[in-house]
Design a protein around this nucleic acid. Structure first.
Length: 693
RNA sequence: GCGUUCAUAGCUCAGUUGGAUAGAGCAACAGCCUUCUAAGCUGUGGGUCGCAGGUUCGAAUCCUGCUGGACGCACCA
């Protein structure tokens, strides 16, 4: 909340009302207020050219002076907040009472603390976010990293803004490639089952590469793979349920578990492997095992990064109904035959949507149609967001267009009432949040990079830096011989050091992906990622631990004075350890009863720097809103970098330790406010927060 | 060929949705640790916003054309 801005908005609206008898919603008028590029121009300005929309037709400069006139005559109404008005071209610039601005802004943060930035929640609409979505039986590569971190961050932002968010991981667990993998598993008899138990995914990945190569020369293997996949699909279709009935069950909340959810029942060893491979039905069991092991592996990595999903789904779950849906669409004339395949012609899209192959089997697109419908029946969402790379734009364009057609052609589906209800309701509710590719990402050897190796490089670099620092402080000890009191606390145990290094590595990796706008391709460069200076995750983590350390030192030094301060306890003991990151648990406790009076005088030499910090803090909410509306986490990234930079400048230039308590007190509040905003922002970005580093 | 998208400092990117003098970070150079964590801070240099037109009070931003890159374009996902 920015009471200065809100006051100014109402003031402009009263001007519009008096002159042109128009009533405008404050929310709509927000655009009229701009922030000047430099605070020598003022603190807020009214851009008069926007007033043309509200009946002020003349030259912007004339409108501006008309408004200036009004503002001067009615200055009484806003004099509590503003001290001066100036006109400059089309802008009418307002200067705030800065001392007041600082204390109101800082107090506002401390009052809301962990909830700062989310005081006004949006309607509790349900949003499904579909992201990450790796392929099973493959190591988690960096290819899925962007979707994962952008999706997770968006989920956090939506949740922060009060939405009811459902995070879905839609696994790529279906397709002929898995027939190939089963073939490989059965074909090679030199599989090391000891290794398989330890790191099943790596073993499977190697098998896949091996069979892929060999199959190019041996068409028999291709044939075997096709056959095994067919058995797999048959197994799923054997127990196929009727779509109408199934949808009805879903909407009634029936929890229908399928067999693949209990993969742990399957245990394959060197001894019984052949039994599985030879039995037609058991192709399904083999695949089910792969799937289960993959999910377990993915969860381990997500856990490492502080990422959690509400639901794991897979394409295989939609495969069951794909053929039936294609059949319905064909029978009702919504789809047609072309060159033996089934298509849906689309307006505005040249390539018709292909929903079934000429051999009748389903495709990615048809399964996605099913998935969106099943999810609607199950979760009744207001909006579903697919966080998928921009190379799939055409696919989603086709998918969304199909739902427009199903809405227009609703009547043709009268024979399938439940299907009709859901299929026709999806138009306009689906969004494709696309992002650019990572270019030039390869290992030193030149191949696909696994996420874990990537994180590990960053982790090692962080470890190196931590060790460097140890060396420096050891040398310092040798020379000056500290009294040891603070020193003892500052030294990491080996465990702490290792977990810190890991979190720094993760912070570096995640922030590197979230700092640029989604839609631009990311040029990958090891030197960039492994540099922890400037606009990086570690810089932000460092800033937080630095501010944290300063706060605790100040509290320690001024302990007696501080305990007497009203309201500080609630904030002081808001330690960093109780902050969960990535898991998105946001505080709803909006009021800390913080009402201590304080101010920072304009006469102090650090006043202008403090004012700039307060200004940055005050625009947090605006930035969150923008990030939400544009589905763009990088807005939060830019914001938090700027705040960190302002703090670091202040920290470097003004020393607090050793000052009078009267001087320290308001600045201590400021520090706590900065810390609260920084941690709130970093949480939204899934950057691990460190108490010290 | 068609479609989508991008082009801003040597490099990586911002640029408040058409507004005031185009900003950061790396890298380069020059400084700052007996004092709150130097993963930091201060300063210097570095720009025909790909090119050419157009729209208007006003364009890095919108429109058209061109150049160059990325991605996609029927039985993969």
């Amino acid at each position: 909340m920015d009471i200065f801005k809100d006051t100014l908005i109402l003031f402009v609206l009263s001007f519009i009302k008096e002159k042109n008898k128009m009533n405008i919603e404050p929310k709509e008028a927000e655009k009229l207020i701009k922030l000047p590029p430099d605070n020598s121009y003022g603190d807020y300005s009214v851009a008069s050219y926007y007033l043309a929309k509200y009946g002020f037709k003349g030259k912007p400069e004339n409108t501006a002076s008309e408004f200036l006139n009004y503002a001067q005559v009615n200055f009484e109404q806003i004099k509590d907040f503003f001290s001066k008005i100036e006109i400059k071209g089309p802008y009418v610039n307002f200067f705030v009472h800065k001392e007041k601005f600082i204390s109101i802004t800082v107090k506002n943060v401390l009052k809301h603390n962990k909830a700062y930035g989310r005081e006004y929640l949006n309607k509790p609409e349900r949003v499904v976010i579909d992201f990450s979505s790796p392929n099973i039986a493959k190591p988690f590569g960096v290819g899925h990293l962007r979707s994962t971190v952008i999706g997770m961050s968006l989920a956090n932002i939506y949740e922060f803004c009060g939405y009811d968010v459902l995070k879905i991981n839609y696994l790529g667990d279906f397709g002929t490639q898995f027939g190939k993998l089963i073939t490989a598993f059965c074909h090679y008899d030199d599989i090391d089952f000891y290794e398989f138990e330890k790191d099943p995914i790596k073993v499977l990945y190697k098998l896949y590469i091996r069979i892929h190569k060999e199959a190019q020369e041996d068409s028999g293997l291709e044939e075997d793979a096709r056959l095994r996949f067919k058995r797999l699909e048959e197994n799923i279709l054997k127990t196929k349920r009727a779509l109408e009935k199934y949808l009805e069950n879903l909407q009634n909340g029936a929890n229908i578990l399928r067999k693949e959810d209990d993969w742990s029942a399957v245990k394959i060893t060197a001894k019984n492997k052949n039994d599985f491979c030879r039995t037609e039905d058991r192709q399904y069991d083999i695949w089910s095992l792969f799937r289960g092991l993959s999910i377990e592996e993915f969860k381990r990595i997500y856990n490492l990064m502080g990422i959690r999903f509400d639901v794991y789904e897979g394409e295989s779950q939609s495969a069951e109904f794909a053929n039936e849906v294609v059949e319905i669409l064909y029978k009702t004339g919504l789809a047609m035959e072309s060159e033996g395949a089934i298509i849906i012609p689309l307006k505005g899209v040249k390539t018709p949507a292909l929903i079934a192959k000429s051999d009748g089997t389903s495709l990615y697109l048809s399964r996605d149609i099913v998935t969106a419908i099943l999810r609607m029946a199950k979760y009744s969402y207001n909006k579903m967001i697919y966080v998928v790379g921009s190379e799939q734009s055409l696919h989603f364009n086709q998918l969304f267009n199909i739902f427009n057609i199903l809405k227009d052609g609703k009547n043709k589906l009268n024979n399938y009432p439940v299907f009709q209800k859901y299929a026709s309701s999806l138009s306009g509710k689906l969004v494709h949040i696309k992002f650019g590719r990572i270019i030039g990402m390869s290992t030193r050897k030149g191949n696909l990079v696994f996420l874990e190796d990537y994180i590990d490089e960053a982790r090692l670099k962080a470890m190196e830096k931590l060790n460097e620092r140890d060396d420096i402080s050891n040398n310092a000890n040798a020379v000056t011989s500290f009294n040891g009191e603070n020193n003892e606390k500052d030294i990491f145990t080996l465990d702490e050091k290792e977990s810190t290094a890991l979190k720094i590595g993760i912070g570096a990796v995640i922030f590197n992906d979230l700092k640029t706008r989604r839609d631009t391709d990311v040029n990958f460069n090891w030197d960039n990622v492994l540099s922890f200076e400037g606009q990086t995750g570690p810089y932000l983590q460092y800033t937080v631990s630095r501010i944290n350390s300063l706060i605790s030192r100040l509290i320690k030094e001024n302990g007696n004075d501080i305990t007497g301060i009203i309201g500080i306890n609630n904030i002081m003991f808001h330690t960093l350890t109780d902050i969960k990151w990535g898991g998105a648990s946001f505080d709803n406790n909006f009021d800390n009863n913080f009402d201590d009076e304080f101010s920072i005088s304009e006469r102090n030499s650090d006043f202008n720097e403090i004012y700039l910090i307060a200004k940055q803090i005050s625009i947090f909410k605006d930035n969150i809103e923008m990030a939400l509306n544009l589905n763009e986490p990088s807005i939060v990234s830019s914001y938090v970098l700027e705040l960190a930079s302002l703090f670091n400048k202040y920290y470097q230039n003004y020393r607090l330790m050793g000052q009078d308590f009267e001087y320290i007190k308001p600045r201590l509040y400021l520090l706590m406010a900065i810390k609260a905003v920084l941690t709130n922002a970093l949480k939204l970005l899934c950057i691990p927060i460190l108490e010290r580093m």
